[in-house]
């Protein structure tokens, strides 16, 4: 029974990934996939058909130059994750600060439903290792792109901007405000007080997310960096509030 289901799964995988790319089926017509049958359906924005391209290396299993980023077109073996592409490319979304997190989660789950090592329990060790590697890269990509702060910092990194350690901030007004906010959290004791500081901090973070979005849209990297630094401080307050809530046993 177990063998039958795993074979079924295997067949399903082959059909769904070779099939969607090559066949004009009603569902593919609906999705518009038939228009560009050479495009990998998982990474639709990568439309490279040159086998010598660095994005499309030679298959480790059969040696074929393959068109698909994930699966070899010839032998359908799972390929190693490409080190040259960024987290946005891995998940197949536009590299912007504003993004639809539902869509992100959907794409992430879809990828993991194909890549998860559990699906390769009966495959060769090599393929299983690749699935482990790929799936962990996808996890990393998702956890980096889901929270706005991490996403913003990653976007900055892509543009070569880093937050250096040992850099000291000395804007006194802003630091005073931070001290006050931190003190408020430290003094909050009752459930209503904790909820109040939590709400206040969440609002602050939401406002900053909007500011960051504006800065990124305008292409103003320096401004975006400033806003993200502020977000860093407020998310560290957020983390303290969370610990406080856990210790007191209050639910979100």
């Amino acid at each position: 029974m177990l063998i039958v289901t795993s074979i079924q799964k295997l067949i399903f995988r082959r059909v769904s990934f070779m099939g969607t790319m090559d066949r004009i089926s009603p569902s593919n017509v609906k999705k518009g996939l038939w228009k560009n049958s050479r495009t990998c359906t998982l990474l639709p924005h990568i439309q490279c058909s040159r086998p010598w391209c660095s994005l499309h290396p030679i298959c480790w299993k059969c040696g074929n130059g393959n068109n698909s980023v994930m699966f070899c077109k010839n032998c359908n073996a799972l390929q190693k994750p490409n080190k040259n592409i960024n987290y946005y490319d891995i998940l197949g979304i536009d590299s912007t600060f504003d993004l639809d997190t539902n869509d992100l989660t959907k794409k992430y789950r879809r990828l993991q439903s194909i890549l998860h090592p559990d699906k390769y329990a009966s495959s060769s060790e090599n393929e299983r290792n690749i699935s482990e590697e790929y799936s962990s890269v996808v996890n990393k990509a998702y956890s980096t792109l889901l929270p706005p702060l991490a996403r913003g910092l990653y976007l900055l990194e892509l543009q070569g901007v880093h937050l250096e350690e040992g850099n000291v901030q000395t804007n006194p007004e802003f630091l005073m405000e931070l001290m006050e906010r931190n003190e408020e959290v430290g003094q909050a004791n009752s459930e209503s007080e904790i909820r109040a500081v939590s709400e206040k901090n969440k609002k602050m973070l939401n406002d900053l997310i909007k500011e960051a979005s504006k800065a990124f849209k305008a292409g103003n990297v320096e401004e975006a960096k400033e806003v993200l630094i502020k977000m860093k401080y407020f998310s560290s307050i957020e983390a303290k509030i969370k610990v406080l809530k856990i210790n007191k046993g209050y639910m979100e």
């Binding site: 350690e165 000395t170 630091l175 931190n182 401080y233």
Partner: peptide, 10 residues
């Protein structure tokens, strides 16, 4: 009064 942007400490 100082802050560390990289870790959010004040």
């Amino acid at each position: 009064l100082v802050g560390a942007p990289a870790c959010g400490d004040v």
